[in-house]
Design a protein around this nucleic acid. Structure first.
Lengths: 107, 107
DNA sequence: TTTTTATGTAACTCAAAAGTTACACTAACT
DNA sequence: AGTTAGTGTAACTTTTGAGTTACATAAAAA
């Protein structure tokens, strides 16, 4: 998965998918073992995994009939860049405010 | 807006809302002036703004019959925390790998 | 005071997406 | 070889949500 084929924001909007990602941050899991953590059916989990893979959040390693899922960093990058931009926005805003205060103090 | 009433991830998943947020990072805009940047109708923009407000991404300042929209930081925090967690995850992973390499080199 | 202008909201339509069940396939076990 | 286990996918249902139009309201302008 070099280039994600799906919008990272839309993919991660789903609470079930965020839970999957959270579980995979603690341990590598197969589709079946993931399903045990949910109310929903296995095909539903399977679909979520496929979506997460296409968005670059998950990588799959096939071992025989089992598919081991673990986190992949690519998907997180778009989100990180996005939040980074707005983080800068707020920092700059605080900075401007600070300068304004300093200017007024020196008058 | 102390506590966001909507899931920040679901709110920001919509490309139109991300575009609104992007526009508001450059200038304060009213609902009508925002609408000029889109193909969609004004009520659609109005709805998006309401959702963004409820999620803490936008603050609204009423001036007469106009509503000036500007960014609010609260909504960004959930996303920032989330990405921060996984950022740590990757850093730790690299760290472990580095230590593993060092251990093997000294053998 | 009549008419614009800026907006919110209700009611509706339509499409996307999340879930289900049923089925197929292949690997592993007996 | 037959059976069980792990998984993918197609077809379907149902819900959600983004968009629309039509209408209501209040502020500003004429």
């Amino acid at each position: 998965m070099a280039t994600p084929q799906l919008d990272a924001f839309q993919v991660i909007a789903d609470p079930s998918r965020r839970k999957i990602v959270s579980l995979l941050s603690e341990e590598v899991l197969t589709i079946n073992s993931l399903t045990e953590h949910f109310e929903m059916s296995r095909p539903a989990v399977s679909k979520h995994i496929k979506i997460l893979e296409q968005a670059g959040f998950v990588k799959i390693e096939n071992q025989g009939r089992e598919r081991y899922c673990h986190l992949h960093s690519v998907g997180f990058e778009a989100i990180k860049d996005w939040i980074g931009y707005y983080d800068d926005f707020w920092k700059e805003k605080i900075n401007k405010l600070q300068k304004l205060i300093e200017t007024n103090e020196s008058e």
